[in-house]
């Protein structure tokens, strides 16, 4: 029984950050990303780190959980660091052993790139940790809705997202059941080489697809019978309203952005890296 699956990374607690309007969170995350790319020195990065750290605090999310988002990317991070460190040739040598050189600019670049990547991941996971997937898709729909005039299917995408979220637990339960049923007929999903295992998936995947298509057909009919006809003229039960907290959040991020810009202008390049 897999009835208690949490979807995505969402960390379900109640906090001021969780309560922010998803539109605001998406925009502010973008702003944070801009900050990350504008930062010039370790001071800038320290500011960004402090911001992320305190936001996580405010969101009642253990910092460890935020760091978990980095785990799948750790090889890329290391790779970014190592490649930049050893393969940039500009600048003055710091260390030179045979043909291997590490330059000051190489070190600077590798630190910059890895930190950027690090904060990028932490910033976006902060958003997905504090925003449920359905709110996220709502926020995206509303932010993208001006593009509807250009025939961009904002409503359709959001509806698809919502239906996918609705049916993922159902299909996972079903997959579990089909798997057991095939095991009862002697199917083996666990042993054998890669090819054998891939072949063993057929008795699981075919019924799962058949069922997904059947469900899709049924659902389409049920939606039509409840007068669904696309996004036109639709009203919503769940409406998003900007609150004071959203304004405060915007001001805070605007402040951070300002500081980062000032840091870039005031501090001499290369100061503290």
């Amino acid at each position: 029984m897999m009835t208690n699956i949490t979807l995505g990374q969402y960390y379900p607690v109640d906090s001021p950050v969780h309560r922010l309007d998803p539109r605001v969170k998406i925009v502010l995350t973008l702003a944070l990303i801009v900050c990350v790319f504008l930062a010039h020195s370790l001071i800038g990065y320290a500011l960004i780190f402090a911001f992320i750290f305190f936001t996580a605090r405010l969101a009642k999310i253990p910092f460890k959980t935020v760091l978990k988002g980095i785990k799948p990317l750790r090889f890329i991070l290391i790779l970014t660091f190592v490649l930049n460190l050893f393969f940039s040739t500009a600048g003055n040598d710091l260390i030179r052993i045979g043909s291997v050189r590490i330059t000051d600019q190489g070190l600077r670049q590798s630190v910059h790139y890895s930190l950027r990547l690090l904060f990028l991941v932490m910033g976006t996971s902060l958003m997905t940790l504090t925003t449920s997937p359905i709110m996220l898709s709502d926020g995206m729909e509303l932010l993208l809705s001006p593009l509807k005039k250009l025939h961009f299917p904002a409503h359709e995408l959001a509806m698809m997202m919502s239906i996918a979220l609705r049916f993922i637990p159902t299909l996972m339960e079903e997959a579990d059941k089909i798997m057991k049923a095939q095991m009862a007929r002697g199917a083996d999903f666990e042993t054998g080489n890669l090819l054998a295992r891939a072949k063993a998936m057929v008795p699981l995947l075919v019924p799962l697809f058949v069922s997904a298509f059947r469900r899709a057909g049924d659902l389409a009919m049920a939606m039509e019978s409840r007068c669904y006809h696309g996004g036109e003229g639709r009203t919503r039960l769940r409406t998003l309203k900007l609150t004071k907290q959203d304004t405060v959040a915007c001001l805070l991020v605007a402040g951070l952005l300002l500081l980062i810009i000032l840091e870039g202008m005031l501090l001499p390049k290369g100061w503290l890296l």
């Binding site: 079903e174 059941k177 089909i178 049923a181 095939q182 009862a184 008795p203 075919v206 019924p207 058949v210």
Partner: peptide
Amino acid sequence: GLVFQYPEYQLFE
């Protein structure tokens, strides 16, 4: 031999 509920949902061949 175990026959699950709605076993027809496991047909695949």
